[in-house]
């Protein structure tokens, strides 16, 4: 009898807490929605998701590479930057259309990343991991400062010319442009292609085997070095496309533009659980939404957006240390 009294009083306390939390959250959301009107809220959400799709393209490259060689490829954000610049030159110098420009950017990035992998990372494959990481930081510096030289891309902000006119549709007060449609559509297409390659093709199977156990994969006759290069190439192609889409959405490019989006995309990949493709996607959407929501709704938000982005990362780490889709790892004793 005494037992059940304790039980029910404890339970009622718990449910009171839950109710208070639910009311608080609901009130908070409603408050935000009515703050600048629901249209503004949904517009911000849409912009956030759009940014998230671009992050996803970068995050996938991080997650693929980390999954296969456990390397935080700090240079990945700069490959993304090269993608933006490649398409810029294709469009303004050679007058190419959107599709050839994006393909050109993807090819340039693929070649660049494979070369980086061969020159900088491959010789360090058996070295301590920190050596490869320092090298990655070095490559990142190199790409940023080399391209900032006067006769390469230059160190100034450059205005990016979109290869197509912007079309605006209005739904109620909600503004949707063809840029949003292109970003979301193209990202989804690339995601499906990637998912197909990983799940259905022989190459994808070999990639997954290599990620699990390199030496066993080698014994099974898989060309591990080839697979690693292929992974870098895949990641770079996505980052190249991401660079073009980013530049179309925010048409200001310079050689250090890869730093913050790169970091945030990486954090997004970690948020989702590094090594997991759906994880990277979900994490990126979350990251993009947080970014835009903070700017739209937090006072001084545009100055504090990075603070909030990384605050969320640390909170997620404390609650679920291996990310949303990450599997808990434990050491064999």
């Amino acid at each position: 009898m005494k037992h059940s009294i304790t039980k029910w009083s404890l339970r009622s306390v718990v449910w009171l807490i839950y109710a208070a939390l639910a009311v608080g959250i609901l009130w908070g959301v409603l408050y935000i929605v009515q703050l600048n009107g629901p249209t503004f809220f949904f517009q911000a959400l849409l912009d956030g998701v759009r940014l998230g799709f671009v992050y996803a393209l970068i995050a996938l490259g991080y997650t693929l590479v980390y999954g296969i060689v456990s390397l935080i490829n700090f240079a990945h954000g700069d490959v993304f930057m090269v993608g933006a610049f490649a398409s810029f030159y294709a469009i303004t110098q050679y007058g190419w259309g959107f599709v050839p420009a994006i393909l050109f950017a993807m090819i340039i990035c693929t070649v660049l990343n494979v070369v980086i992998e061969r020159v900088a990372y491959k010789p360090l494959r058996d070295a301590p991991r920190i050596a490869a990481l320092i090298t990655a930081i070095g490559v990142s510096f190199f790409l940023e400062y080399f391209t900032a030289l006067r006769w390469v891309f230059g160190a100034d902000f450059i205005t990016y010319q979109r290869p197509f006119p912007v079309v605006v549709w209005r739904f109620g007060g909600l503004i949707i442009t063809n840029i949003t449609v292109i970003i979301i559509g193209l990202t989804l297409l690339l995601l499906f292609v990637l998912q197909y390659i990983i799940k259905r093709t022989k190459m994808g199977k070999a990639m997954r085997a290599t990620a699990l156990d390199k030496s066993a994969a080698r014994l099974m006759g898989i060309n591990v070095n080839g697979i690693i290069s292929f992974t870098f190439a895949l990641g770079a192609a996505l980052a190249g496309a991401g660079g073009v889409l980013f530049a179309i959405a925010f048409p200001q490019i310079w050689t250090f533009m890869g730093l913050m989006p790169g970091l945030k995309a990486f954090v997004a990949a970690v948020l989702g659980g590094i090594g997991s493709v759906p994880g990277a996607f979900v994490g990126s959407l979350l990251m993009g939404s947080i970014d835009v929501m903070v700017v739209s709704f937090v006072p001084m938000g545009s100055r504090l957006r990075d603070l909030f982005a990384f605050l969320v990362l640390i909170i997620v780490f404390l609650v679920k240390p291996t990310g949303i889709f990450g599997e808990p790892q434990s050491e064999k004793v």
């Binding site: 900088a120 930081i137 190199f142 940023e144 080399f146 160190a155």
Partner: peptide, 12 residues
């Protein structure tokens, strides 16, 4: 400007 181009190369 070449300072930070040469420095990462040395690092590598």
């Amino acid at each position: 400007d070449w300072r930070f181009v040469i420095y990462p190369v040395l690092l590598l």
